[in-house]
Design a protein around this nucleic acid. Sequence first.
DNA 1: AGAAAAAAGAGAAAAAAATCTCTATTTCCA
DNA 2: TGGAAATAGAGATTTTTTTCTCTTTTTTCT
Lengths: 222, 222
Amino acid sequence: MIGHSAKIPLPSLKRLPGYVHFLRSLKCEGVATVSTTAIGRALRLDPTQVRKDLACTGAEGRPRVGYRVDDLIVVLEEFLGWRNVSEAFLVGAGHLGSALLGYEGLRNHGLDVIAAFDSHPAKVGQDVHGVKVLDIERLPGLARRMGVHIGVLTVPVDAAQEVAERMVEGGILSIWNFAPVSLQLPEKIFVQNGELYAQLAVLLRRTEEAVSRKTPSTPEVA
Amino acid sequence: MIGHSAKIPLPSLKRLPGYVHFLRSLKCEGVATVSTTAIGRALRLDPTQVRKDLACTGAEGRPRVGYRVDDLIVVLEEFLGWRNVSEAFLVGAGHLGSALLGYEGLRNHGLDVIAAFDSHPAKVGQDVHGVKVLDIERLPGLARRMGVHIGVLTVPVDAAQEVAERMVEGGILSIWNFAPVSLQLPEKIFVQNGELYAQLAVLLRRTEEAVSRKTPSTPEVA
DNA sequence: AGAAAAAAGAGAAAAAAATCTCTATTTCCA
DNA sequence: TGGAAATAGAGATTTTTTTCTCTTTTTTCT
Ligand SMILES: NC(=O)c1ccc[n+]([C@@H]2O[C@H](COP(=O)([O-])OP(=O)(O)OC[C@H]3O[C@@H](n4cnc5c(N)ncnc54)[C@H](O)[C@@H]3O)[C@@H](O)[C@H]2O)c1
Ligand SMILES: NC(=O)c1ccc[n+]([C@@H]2O[C@H](COP(=O)([O-])OP(=O)(O)OC[C@H]3O[C@@H](n4cnc5c(N)ncnc54)[C@H](O)[C@@H]3O)[C@@H](O)[C@H]2O)c1
């Protein structure tokens, strides 16, 4: 169960994992307490904002001291649902899918991919980083029987919609979609897009801005 | 050059790639014009919001008709800098790095990874999906000589800070960082984090909400 | 012990983003 | 040809998010 069912602003929720990563590094260094000032300096965030975010999770600090690092990690991990991981199915054991399957990081972040699915005969039956690849036909039945609610979608664009519908058929409630398409599914199904391209768009724009700062006054006509 | 240097809200910029993906699929189906109402329905966004986003890029539509799909794609791709791709270096030819190197999608989205770097002797000299893997030691020199401004960072957490500093040493201005650490770099360097964990946090929370909706009134004490 | 400094926490203000309202334009249809 | 419907576009409003201000608490230093 994910802690503190209270409503948290979406931007705050998205910042929480970053806090945990930073806190874990502090813990490794043996730091016992930390202030929002210090967190903000490290993560380039306003200290007040950090304080507000932490308050949403129920964390409590002490004036002049800050927060106990150990306790704060526990509270945040609890809040994020990282302490009892959720089971998920992954479809598309290709390049990206295999990278995710081999990434032990997911389990540390609340997600346990317990099986993979593919349609290609060469993939079915394989064992990718310890995860069995099954025939996609078996997904709906297994998802329903095992009560799996999360699907990770790493198939090519053309197959994405079809595979997503298979997931829904199996009772999947949320889909993490890495294909660059907008899936058309019942409204109750939550779709989290990979947003690789959104990130890239920001990166390219900022880079362009930085380059033109370095090379000022470049007239288009000479 | 990235078009229309005008300031666009960050959330708007992030939505643009999704519009392009949808428009491309319309084009494949032979659709000639599209309204913001239709875009909004497909992407689950408010039509006014779509219109505001498109206005930022300089796109113009006609009442009662909407936007010409072909033209809109061109305007958006121009705006996003997808028409003349930017060159980038990637460091860390492991699982994730290889997946990205083999992904022709990046080039369609404005990024051309022209070389990869690694520190492991077994990786150096290899050819991953047509991209040469070079020794990390050569990165600063090559980056500076070739005028590469973007770095993609896919090394383990422990190496991330060190590698990032190498990139900065080579004149890299922006870093796409997939390691779960907050890089400490000069303020002028732009860091776009992979945000995998932020997405996962949202996914888990929404799933939890959906599950508890399906299983209402679960008292903690019987 | 008392003063000073640092930081949490609460509330107010400001900024940013999303949504709503209205008008003008264009096309379709009778 | 005239009316109805759909939609872009501009501006106003509301909501959300971020930032600022002030108060209180705790610790450290003299
Ligand atoms: N490779 C990357 O780095 C990367 C990055 C971001 C997004 N993506 C996206 O992720 C998706 C996968 O990319 P990839 O590079 O891993 O592709 P890939 O071709 O390596 O892998 C796709 C896998 O999906 C399987 N598949 C195809 N149709 C299927 C179906 N109907 N049912 C089940 N399995 C099916 C294929 O057999 C294959 O194993 C694409 O949509 C791509 O745009 C990839
Ligand atoms: N695998 C995934 O799906 C995934 C997803 C999200 C984030 N990440 C993150 O991406 C990073 C890489 O993950 P991975 O699974 O690809 O790991 P990996 O171990 O497969 O690859 C890491 C690569 O970096 C190289 N490397 C290590 N130290 C280096 C150095 N100092 N200089 C140059 N190269 C060096 C290694 O030789 C290796 O090739 C990690 O930080 C991980 O947390 C991975």
